[in-house]
Design a binder for these strands. Sequence first.
RNA 1: GCGCGGUUAGCUCAGUGGUAGAGCACUUCCUUGACACGGAAGGGGUCAGAGGUUCGAACCCUCUAUCGCGCACCA
Length: 1032
Amino acid sequence: MSEIPKAYEPQSVESKWYQFWLGHQCFVADAHSKKPAYSIVIPPPNVTGVLTLGHVLNNTIQDILARRARMLGCETLWLPGMDHAGIATERQVEKAVRTEEKKTKQDLGREEFIKRVWAWKEKHGGIIIQQLKKLGCSCDWSRERFTADPDYSRCVQKVFVELYKKGLIYRGKRMVNWCPASLTALSDEEVVMKAQSGLLHYFKVEVVEIVGQASRLSQTEKEKNENAGRQDACPTNNEIRATGIWLTIATTRPETIPGDTAVAVNPKDKRYAKLIGKHVMRPLPAELPREQKLIPIIGDEQIDIEFGTGVLKVTPAHDKADFEIGQRHKLPVIDIMNPDGTMNSLAGADLVGLDRFKARKVAAEKLKELGALEKEEPHQNNIGYSERADVPIEPRLSEQWFLKYPSVDKARACVEQSDEKGSAGAPPAAVGALADGPARAGAVDGASAAAPEAGALPDKMRFFPQRWAKVYDNWMNNIQDWCISRQLWWGHRIPVWYRKSEIRNPKSEIDTDDVWCENNPPPDPGNWEQDPDVLDTWFSSWLWPFATMGWTGDKSQDSKNPTLQTFYPTTDLVTAPDIIFFWVARMIMAGYEFMGQMPFQNVYFTGVIRDKLGRKMSKSLGNSPDPLDLIGNYGADALRFGIMRSAPLGQDVLYDEQHVELGRNFCNKLWNACRFRQLVGQASSLSPTDSKHASKDETGATPVPRYEVQGEINPALLTSDDKWILLKLDQAIREIDVAFAEYKFSEVTATLYRFFWSEYCDWYVEASKATLARPVESLKRGNVESTSGSTVERFNGSTNEADAIRANKLAVIDFVLSHTLRLFHPFLPFITEELWHGMGYDGDLPANQGGDTIMFAHWPKPLDDDFKAHYRLNESDERFVDAKYELVTRGRNLRREFNIAANKKVKFVLKVKDPLPPEEADVIKLLLNADALDVDPNFTPRKGTPSALTDLGELFLPLEGLVDIEAEKARLRKELAKIESEIEKVQSKLHNPDFVQKVPPKVLDEHKNRLADWQAKQQQIKAALRALGEKP
RNA sequence: GCGCGGUUAGCUCAGUGGUAGAGCACUUCCUUGACACGGAAGGGGUCAGAGGUUCGAACCCUCUAUCGCGCACCA
C-alpha cells in the first residue's frame, strides 16, 4: 500500500507513456484501413518557432479531436510538419552568419547561403516538434512534412506553372508594400495597421502661372529628371509669373515633398477650382532652380474637401492613392528613396542619405528655415507596418509577380453562412450516430447529419464559431490579387527563366518568347537566367492539406495514392483566427482548384491567448510564460486541462497560471480517487498483481500496482447510491457527446469536472464509505439504532452477503472509473494511460481495444434502455438519492448554524414519514459525521431542538443542554421569510389570469407543484415555531 | 466610416423565453484511513443603461454607453 505515491507525479509517467505510444506505432495512420477515416493537418509552425501558449491551445484541441476519433474507431491521421518561414528564417540565419563568420549573405553568395540555412535547420530548427511531443501530441510523425522538402517543392512549382499557363499568375510593375527592413515586397495581408500619433505639417506654396509654355512637365522631362537629376532648365525665369496666391498644404510626410509631382484639389471645391491648371513652386529640394520646382495643380474628385486644407500634395512614387491619381493624370513618378528606406539623391542635398524618419524631421526644419512652414499639429493616423519586421512599410513601385486567385466562386460559396435548420447545429443526430457505435462514418463530427452515408461529404464547410464565416465572406467578396514574389533567397525560387540578352534588362517588359515557365528548367540553361525572387511562404502553405499527402497533380497517379484517397478532404482544421485570410481562405481555393474538393469539412477557430490584463501574449511584453516550464512544474495534462477549461468556443482566453494549477489539482484528484479504489480493493483481500508494463518503466518510477478488477455488476445487489451514480454517468456521457458535436470543449471539461468531482467523489465515494471504508466485520453488526428497541438486521446479518454487496460496489466503481478514464483520455492522455494500466482496466480487453493502451479503448456510450432496464435504473432512485443528499446538506447546515465543530460526532434523529431502510440510514449517518442516527417516526423533540425539513422527514439535532431557543427561533424565522418570498413570487404568477390562461400546461403544473412544495415547508416551519412558543 | 463580438457574483466565464449558475477568490470550521493539490458550510448578483414585444425577458426587438476585434481609410 505504501508504494502508491500520495500525489500524482507526472514527469516520469509522461516520458514513459510517450515512448510507449511511439514504440507501438499508436499514432501511425494506416491508409489501407477499413475503418472510417478521420484526419487533421497541423497548422505548420515556423521552423524557427518555439512553443507558445497559443500553440498549446491549438494543438491540445487537435490532439483531443484525434484521440477521441481513435477511440470512436476511426482510422485517424494527424499529419504534422513545419513551414520554412521565408523571412523569419532568412533573418535568423543572416544574423547567425554575421555573428559567427562576420559575413553577409552577399559575401557567401546565394548557393552557399542556402546551404547555411539547411545546416541551421538541421541544428536549431524544429525545436517546436520536440515540444509538441512533450505536450502529448499524437501526430503521425512518420509522415512529418516540411514545406521546403524536395517533394513539396515540386508541388509548389507545379502549381505555379499551372496557374501561370492559365494566365492567373502575371508579372507587373505595381505599387506594393515594401518592407525596408527585410528588403522585400509583402502581400496586403502581411501589413498590419497601427494607430500612430504624428504631426500634420502645414506648409505654403505660391501659385504661379507659366506664360507660353506647356502647363506641366512632360514625360521626356520626367525621364530626364530621373536619369540626370533635372539639370536641364525648362521654362526660363521670365516665363514664370507669380500670382500672389498662396496655397497651404497639410502633410504627415514632408520628407516626400521632393517626390511631389502635382498638387491636387477637388474640382468641386469653390476655393480652388479656378486654380486648376496653374502651378505651384514645390519648396524642396531647396537647391533646385525655380523652374525645376514647378508642379501643376490638378483637379481630382477623390480629394476630400473637408480634410486638412483641401489641398493634397501628390507623391506618386510613395503613396498608393497618389500613385493612382498620378496614373489618372499621367504624372511623372519620382522615386526619392532607396530600398532600405534612406533618401536618395533625388531627395536633394539636405535629405540624401538620411533615414526616412530622420529625413522627415530635417525636411520640416528646412521648411521652417525657408519660411514655408505655417504650423504643425499633432495628428492621429493609421500606418501600415510590416508584420514580420515591425517597421512601417513603404509603398513602392516595383516589378513583382501577382496571382489572380483561382476557384474564388466555389470557395466563397462552400462555407455555411448561417445556422440554417437541418444543416448546422445538428447535435442530436450526431449523438444518435455515436450511440449506435463507433464504426460509422461521420460519427466523429457534428456534421454527421449532413453526411449520413459513409463516404458522402457534406456540401458545406462549417466554421466554429460560425461568425468567422461572415469575416471570410467579406474578404472573399473584396479579394485583391496576391503579390507572391519575395526578394529573398530562402524559399521556393520562382520557376521562370528569362532569355539572356545583352540589351534587355531581364526584369522589365517581358516578351513571352523570352520567358520559360515549365516544370523543368530550360534545356539550354546557359542561355537563360532564372528569376532571382522566391515565392511567398504562404504560396506553399496553401497546398498543405494535399501536398503533405503525396499529391503530384497527375490525376491517374493521385487516384492511386491511398493516403490522398483515404484522408483527403480532411475532417477538421484547427487554427488561430488571425490566419483566416493568410491560410484558411487560400487553402480552400487551392483545394477546389487542384483537388476539386474542399480541403476540410469543419474549421475550428481558437481564441487568442491574452494575459490577465487582456493583452496579447508577446515576446516584447514578456508576458508569455514558457509552456515547457509549466509542463515541468505542473505536468502536461494539467496544462492541457487548465487551458481547455478556460477556453470557451469563440472567446479569447485570459491566461492565468491558476488555470494550470487547477489542472494539476484535478489530476491529483483523479489519481487519488483511483488510489482510494485500490486501498479499499486491497482491504477486501484482493491481491495485487504486477503491472504488465511495469518492466517497461525505465525511469525508475514506481509503477502503480495492479489489482483485480471486479467482474459483473449484480443488479440485485445495487444500492440506491450505485444506481444514482450510474445514472449520473449516463447523463454526463450524453452531455459530453453533445458538447463535442458542437466543438464546445470547455463545456466538456465542465461536465467532466462536475461529474467526477462533485457527483462521483463528493457524494458517491463518500457515501460508499459506509460500505467500503470500514472493516468487513463491522458490516455484520447493524449499528444503526432504532428506537423501536430492536437492532436492525441488515443483509440478513450474513457476512457473505455483506461481502457480496461490497464486491458489487467495487464493480460499480470499476465500471464508473473505467468509463471516466476513457472520457478523460483525450484531455489527459498521460495520467489516464497510467491509471488505465494501474487499475487493471486493460485486463480482459483485446489488445487493439484497450488491452494495450487506453488510446484504442472504445469511447463510452450512453447507457441504453436495455442496460437501464437490466440494472433497474430509474428516476425514482435518482430522486430518492437526491433527497437523501439534500437531507445531508441540511443536517450539515444545522451543525454549522449551531457551531458544532466539523470533527465533533453528534447524534441526529430523523422523524420519518415512510420507513427508511437501515442501510440508507447508515449512509446518512456517515455523511453527517454522526455517532448515531435514530430513525423514529414518533419522535417528540424537546422544546427548541434545532430541526430541518426534508423530503424524507424532519431531521433533528438534539443538543444536550445547549439548546438556545432564541437562536433556533431566529433561524426558523429567517428560513420562513425566504420561503414566503418564494411563495409570493409563485403566487403572483398564478394569480395572474393571463398567466393561467396562456401558459403551457407543463409550465403551469411546475408552478403549482412548486407552490405546493413551498407551502408544505411553510406549514412545517410554522409548526416548529409554534412548538417554540412563537406565534408566526 | 462599415461590420462583428463582449458587458451576468470581487475575478474568469457558462447560461437561446418559465425558481440566476460554475470555478477561482473570500468568511468560518475541519488534518476523520483517497486527496490540505483536500473536505464541509456560508456570504456575495436591480444580468451595462433606457424603451419595446410577451402572461412571463439575462435571453427576442430598438436605441444608448462602454470595451475588444476585423475591414476600409484623409494627406
